[in-house]
């Protein structure tokens, strides 16, 4: 309580009010020293003359709770699976940016949610441990059951939900049969991505549901080239992270400036190694060489928010039916 009162007192003092405070909501991992937050803060503060403050947590649930009273000026780190609910809240304003130069594998014309980095779901393995990885999704389904994979729960994890939609896209009406073939290979279903990835690096599983860009971390930060993403000819599911400005912000100019900063070369140039995914607006030759050389999917699957929302319930029911047996 005392610290709250202290904060109220200091907030009212003129010394700190000289610089405008600009509030950015982001997920937990984002603002840590190992995420892209500090670089974004530094980069934007040099051009805006403001004091950027990250507030972390579950971004959308928190915004929905706060409604019009939110202190947030912009949010960063939303995923495409929540844009429908976010849009329906009416809390967001158009970003006003020119989307023509985006380097996404799909067309993006959303006027509210601005992509800043993307990747695709993929099964990652260690080539020194798994010598004959499946070369297609079908081969993964047909692999012997002692090939063990870890996946994430679609009810608590965004990558888990993406897998649900990926299977639906690749196998269509046969998706339930596909899950039945996959199930004996699933070692465990974890609540989030980090637990899965930890089990994989501990050698518990042969493959882990992660991203096509995951090997970049091991190459770039650890100089370890053994981790690879299995690229499937059936295609991979598109994952994108988004920024948006609040309609009720008291600093619309700064918010607009931030949206522009997100697509600037400064921001886009650092995001690959800060968030280990592809920047949304950066030509491939501007990426670090090892990053540009990562194998990419030939085919990209993506469901827009209306399709994805319509598919979520039945696909989840199907998954539960198979995995709860």
């Amino acid at each position: 309580m005392r610290s709250a009162m202290f904060a109220l007192l200091t907030a009212a003092s003129p010394a700190l009010a000289a610089q405008d405070e600009f509030t950015v909501y982001g997920p937990d991992y984002f603002a840590s020293e190992w995420g892209p937050g500090p670089a974004i803060e530094e980069g934007f503060e040099t051009i805006c003359g403001c004091d950027l403050k990250f507030v972390t947590g579950d971004v959308l649930p928190r915004l929905l709770l706060e409604g019009e009273r939110t202190e947030a000026d912009v949010v960063i780190g939303l995923n495409s699976d929540v844009t429908k609910r976010a849009r329906e809240s009416g809390l967001f304003a158009p970003h006003g940016q020119d989307l023509s130069g985006l380097t996404l594998p799909i067309d993006w014309t959303d006027e509210v949610f601005l992509p800043f980095n993307w990747s695709q779901t993929a099964f990652v393995y260690d080539r020194t441990e798994l010598e004959n990885p499946p070369t297609s999704f079908q081969e993964l389904l047909d692999a012997p059951d002692d090939l063990k994979i870890v996946i994430q729960d679609p009810r608590s994890s965004i990558s888990g939900l993406a897998l649900l939609l990926w299977v639906k896209e690749v196998f269509g009406d046969e998706s339930e049969a596909a899950w039945r073939k996959l199930k004996p290979k699933v070692l465990t279903v974890t609540p989030g991505w980090s637990e899965s990835y930890g089990l994989f690096t501990d050698g518990e599983a042969d493959m882990v549901l992660s991203y096509t860009t995951s090997p970049a971390y091991h190459i770039g930060a650890e100089n370890d080239t053994s981790k690879q993403a299995a690229i499937f000819p059936e295609g991979h599911y598109f994952m994108v992270e988004l920024a948006a400005q609040l309609a009720g912000t008291d600093q619309p100019e700064l918010a607009r400036q931030f949206m522009g900063y997100v697509l600037s070369e400064d921001f886009q140039g650092m995001i690959a190694e800060a968030n280990w995914s592809y920047p949304s607006k950066l030509e491939r030759d501007l990426l670090p060489a090892y990053f540009a050389a990562l194998p990419r999917a030939q085919l990209t699957h993506f469901l827009d928010e209306t399709e994805a929302e319509a598919l979520r319930e039945p696909a989840l029911d199907e998954w539960l039916r198979v995995f709860a047996q």
């Binding site: 991992y29 603002a31 990250f54 947590g57 990835y197 930060a221 280990w276």
Partner: peptide, 20 residues
Amino acid sequence: FADSENATLPLKLYQLMNSY
């Protein structure tokens, strides 16, 4: 109620795990 600037040790652990 997260305060990433004043993170606790368990939160740091999770942040590390989430950054590979």
